[in-house]
Each structure stands twice: as C-alpha cells, then as structure tokens.
C-alpha cells in the first residue's frame, strides 16, 4: 500500500459522504454547463437542474401497459449507482475512496455494466421507442467500448500500474496528455458516448421520441438523468486524473486544481459536443472499428515503446 485511501485519511463516514457529494456536485456542474450552452446562460442556470429535479419528485408517476416493472426499476436505479460507484477509484483529493491494484478495471467495469442498465431502461416500459433506444445503446457500445478500454490501458501502461493514484504520481514530470493525446480525446468522447449525451444521444434520440427515456417519469427519470450527468462528471474527473496530472499545479491546493481541471474538461466537452448533430450508431460503429481501434492501438504502441526506452521511469 503506497498511500492512504480517503477512508483511512478522513474516517469512513466523511469519506463516503464526501465522494458521493462530489459526484452529485459534478453532475450538477455538468447539467448546468450543458444548459448554459444549449439554452444560454443566466443566473438561474445553476438552479435550473435542481428545480427540474424537484419537479420530478412531485410529478405523478406514469406506467405503461404490461411493463416489466422489476427490471425497469432496476435499470433506472442502476444508472446513478454505477455512476457514483465509478467515482470510488477517482482520486478527488489526491486519494481515492477505494484503492486496489486494478482501479482502472473497476472504472471500466462500472461503465460496462451500464450496457445492461440502459438496455433494461429501454426494455422495461414495453414501448417501441424505448426498446429501439435500448438496442441502439448496445450498438453504440460496440463502437466506443474498445477504443475506451485501449485509452484506459494506455494510461496504465505508461504508469506501469492500474492504480489511479499511481497513474497520477507517474505524471509528476509530464502530463500524460502530451504523449497520449489520442487516448485522451478518445476517452472523453467515449464518456459522452456511455452517458449517451450530446453527439451520442442516439439511444435517447429525438428521432425516436426520447428513446430509452421516453416513458420515464418522476423519480425514475430523475435517477436516469442524474446518473448520466454524474457519469459525465466522473469521467471528466477520471480524465483529469489519468491524462491531466490529477491535482498537480502551482500555488493552489491540490483538490482545487483537480476540480478546476475537471471543470475545464466538462466545459470543453459540452462546448464541443453541442456544436455537432447526433451521430447515428449505424455509422459510428464503422468509424469505431476502422478508425478509432487502430488509432488507439497505435497510441498504445507508441507509449509501449516509450516505456521500453524508460521515458516514463
């Protein structure tokens, strides 16, 4: 054990509460920035997602004809659960809540389980648009999953460890984004894809009347929307840790730097992501396999050669 975990440093309860709170705040930041870019920013922009969330709590729930209630509810609850759990291995204050020799695999696993969760959200209501959306998410997953995994592995490869705190420590000399720009961009784009947001909204696309989200109401919708926003925020935080040196930076304390960088990643992602239309999954799959997989592999090869030459040592 090279370092303390958050739980050891702060005590169990404050650490757990802290990480969940950071996740919710990140989700709120994502929702507010997204709203500011799409609708235009005003003073009420930050409050708007909160207001929408509160309204969903008061809303009468709807249920469709012969839905698969159990699986539907399970899918809805799984989306935010997975999003928050993925934050357990993100080093927010220089430490993670949970530190293992396979942190990157954990992050990957949380995102991979999302395949099942989103498909269940689409399957549950017994509605054609939702079902189509659920299957679209799987098709989209086939496009982004491998490039995302290669991007994660590339960061672990350079650090010689799959522990996120080790990856952050390995960047003391040089941020990984310098030697692995492709992996960084692919990772952030994949984050948008697994949160099915922006250009990757197709599973919840307006062309299928909202897709997986089309029959959601009340708390169910709140949970799914919340989960997507938290996942985007968590992925931005993870990108900061893996490629942008984590909490490294002059003058300001580490956690402040970390949050500033995460905020910058979120802003850049939303700003770029909202400038393009939705990409149809039946076309992204081809790009994913024929362009992104070779590119990320080439990136991994370059990094592997650098590792052999002792560049990161």
């Amino acid at each position: 054990m090279p370092e303390q975990t958050l739980a050891e440093a702060w005590g169990l309860a404050p650490a757990v509460l802290g990480v969940v709170a950071v996740g919710l705040i990140l989700g709120l930041v994502v929702a507010a920035v997204d709203r500011a870019v799409v609708v235009g920013g005003t003073v009420g922009t930050v409050a708007a997602p909160l207001r929408d969330g509160a309204r969903l709590l008061f809303e009468q729930r709807r249920t469709t004809l012969a839905p698969d209630r159990l699986l539907w509810r399970l899918g809805c609850a799984a989306v935010p659960t997975l999003a928050l759990l993925s934050l357990a291995v993100v080093p927010v204050g220089g430490r993670t809540l949970w530190s293992t020799s396979a942190d990157l695999v954990w992050f990957n696993a949380m995102e991979a389980l999302l395949w099942a969760a989103v498909w269940l959200v689409g399957w549950g209501p017994n509605a054609v648009h939702a079902l189509t959306g659920g299957y679209r998410f799987l098709a989209q997953g086939l496009a982004y999953e491998l490039p995302l995994m290669f991007a994660l592995i590339t960061a672990g490869l350079a650090a010689g460890s799959l522990r996120t705190t080790d990856v952050v420590t390995a960047q003391e000399g040089l941020w990984f984004v310098v030697t692995m720009p492709v992996a960084f961009v692919v990772f952030v784009a994949s984050a948008a894809a697994f949160a099915f947001w922006g250009p990757f909204t197709a599973p919840a696309g307006p062309d299928i009347a909202g897709g997986v989200t089309s029959e959601l109401s009340g708390v169910d919708r709140l949970l799914v929307d919340l989960g997507r926003a938290v996942f985007l925020g968590a992925a931005a935080a993870m990108a900061t840790a893996l490629f942008l040196g984590g909490d490294a930076g002059p003058w300001l304390p580490g956690p402040v730097w970390f949050l500033l960088k995460t905020f910058a990643v979120v802003t850049a992602l939303v700003w770029v992501g909202r400038r393009v239309p939705v990409l149809r999954p039946d076309r992204t799959v081809e790009i994913g396999w024929m362009v992104l997989v070779p590119m990320t592999l080439l990136q991994a090869l370059v990094v592997a050669v650098l590792v052999l030459n002792g560049f990161y040592a």
């Binding site: 054990m1 975990t5 958050l6 739980a7 050891e8 169990l12 309860a13 650490a15 757990v16 509460l17 990480v19 969940v20 935010p80 659960t81 928050l84 759990l85 357990a88 809540l97 949970w98 530190s99 293992t100 020799s101």
Partner: peptide, 16 residues
Amino acid sequence: GEESDMVALLSMAALI
C-alpha cells in the same frame, strides 16, 4: 489494506 477498503466501497454502495 484493500480488504479494509472494501468496507468503504460497500458503505458507499449502501449509502447510494
């Protein structure tokens, strides 16, 4: 150390 961390992770899951 990782085993004791599991408690933190499980507590987080329970809280969620």
